[in-house]
C-alpha cells in the first residue's frame, strides 16, 4: 500500500478532507452566496434562526449571521494560512541551517529559538498587536512570531537525523553543493512532518485570532469567526445563535485540519497502524 491509498482508506481523513473542500468552496462562492457586505444591517436585530428569512438568524445589530460566517471563512482562513506560511518561512530555514551545519551555528540558532520560546507566547502576541495596532498585517505577524519556534525545532531534528543518512553522505562525497543537497536531498524528505505540523498551525492560528479579537485586538474592518464568537458570546443567554454558529465553524475547520493532519501522519508512518493491528 502506498501513502496515498493508506490516506484514502482512513475514514477520518476523508471526512476532514471533505470538510476542507467544502470550506474552500464556501470561500470561493461567498460573493455569489451573499453578495452584500456581511456588515450590512439587513433585518430585525437578534432574530432567531429560521424564524425570519435568515437561515442562522441575525446578530445584535440585525446583520445576517450566515453571511458573516461565509465571508468570515475567507478572512479566518487567510489569517490561518498566511500566518502559517510566514512562520514556516522563518522556521524552516533556521531549522535547516541549524540541523545541517551543527556546531556553533546550531548553538546560535537554538539560543535564538529558545529566546522566543521563553517569552510567554500569548503575552508576546498581545504586545506585538498592541504596538502595531490591530490590522490584518499585524495580527498575521504576531501569530507568525509566536508560532515559528516549534517549526525550527522540528526541522532541525529532521535535518540532524537525515544528514547522517547514506544518500546524503553520498551526495556530500560526490561534491554536490550545499544548497543543492539541502534543497534536493534533505528538504523533500521533511515535507511530511512539515505538512502535518502546518495543518495544526493553521488551526491554532484561527484560535489565536479569536482570542486576540476577544481582547479587543481584532481588525474592525474584517469579519472573522473569532470576531463573531467574541462579539456574540456575552449574549449567549438571550441569543445563543450569534456566537454558536461561528463557534461551530471554527470547530469544524480545526477538526478537519486535525483529521487531515493525522491522516497524513498515519499514512506516512504505516508502521504505527500495522503494529497495532496484531
Amino acid at each position: 500500500m502506498n501513502a496515498f491509498t493508506r490516506f484514502a482508506s482512513n475514514r477520518g481523513a476523508i471526512v476532514g478532507l471533505g470538510l476542507l473542500l467544502l470550506l474552500v468552496a464556501v470561500v470561493l462562492l461567498a460573493p455569489l452566496l451573499y453578495p452584500q457586505s456581511p456588515w450590512r444591517m439587513v433585518g430585525r436585530p437578534m432574530g432567531a434562526p429560521l424564524a425570519g428569512s435568515f437561515l442562522l438568524g441575525t446578530d445584535t445589530l440585525g446583520r445576517d449571521v450566515a453571511a458573516g460566517i461565509v465571508h468570515g471563512a475567507r478572512v479566518s482562513l487567510l489569517i490561518g494560512v498566511v500566518s502559517t506560511v510566514v512562520a514556516l518561512l522563518i522556521g524552516v530555514p533556521l531549522g535547516a541551517v541549524a540541523g545541517y551545519f551543527g556546531g556553533l551555528i546550531d548553538d546560535l540558532v537554538m539560543r535564538f529559538t529558545e529566546f522566543f520560546q521563553t517569552i510567554p507566547s500569548f503575552a508576546l502576541a498581545i504586545v506585538v498587536v498592541a504596538i502595531l495596532q490591530p490590522t490584518l498585517l499585524s495580527i498575521v505577524l504576531a501569530i507568525a512570531i509566536v508560532s515559528w519556534p516549534p517549526v525550527t525545532r522540528l526541522i532541525r531534528g529532521e535535518f540532524l537525523s537525515l544528514r547522517s543518512r547514506e544518500y546524503v553522505q553520498a551526495a556530500i562525497t560526490v561534491g554536490q553543493s550545499t544548497p543543492r543537497i539541502i534543497f534536493t536531498q534533505i528538504l523533500p524528505n521533511t515535507l511530511a512532518p512539515i505538512i502535518v505540523m502546518a495543518s495544526l498551525m493553521v488551526a491554532t492560528a484561527i484560535l489565536l485570532e479569536s482570542s486576540l479579537s476577544f481582547l479587543g485586538l481584532g481588525d474592525p474592518n474584517l469579519m472573522t469567526w473569532g470576531y463573531m464568537v467574541g462579539a456574540g458570546r456575552s449574549r449567549i443567554i438571550d441569543a445563543w445563535w450569534i456566537s454558536f454558529f461561528p463557534g461551530v465553524a471554527i470547530f469544524l475547520t480545526v477538526l478537519a485540519l486535525n483529521l487531515v493532519g493525522e491522516g497524513i501522519n498515519d499514512a506516512l508512518n504505516p508502521r504505527l497502524r500495522k503494529e497495532d493491528r496484531k
Binding site: W39, R40, M41, T60, L61, G216, P220, A231, S234
Partner: peptide, 13 residues
C-alpha cells in the same frame, strides 16, 4: 467595550 464597537459599525454603515 463592545457597545462602542457596535456603534462604530452602525455609523460606518
Amino acid at each position: 467595550g463592545e457597545t462602542w464597537t457596535r456603534w462604530a459599525e452602525t455609523i460606518r454603515q
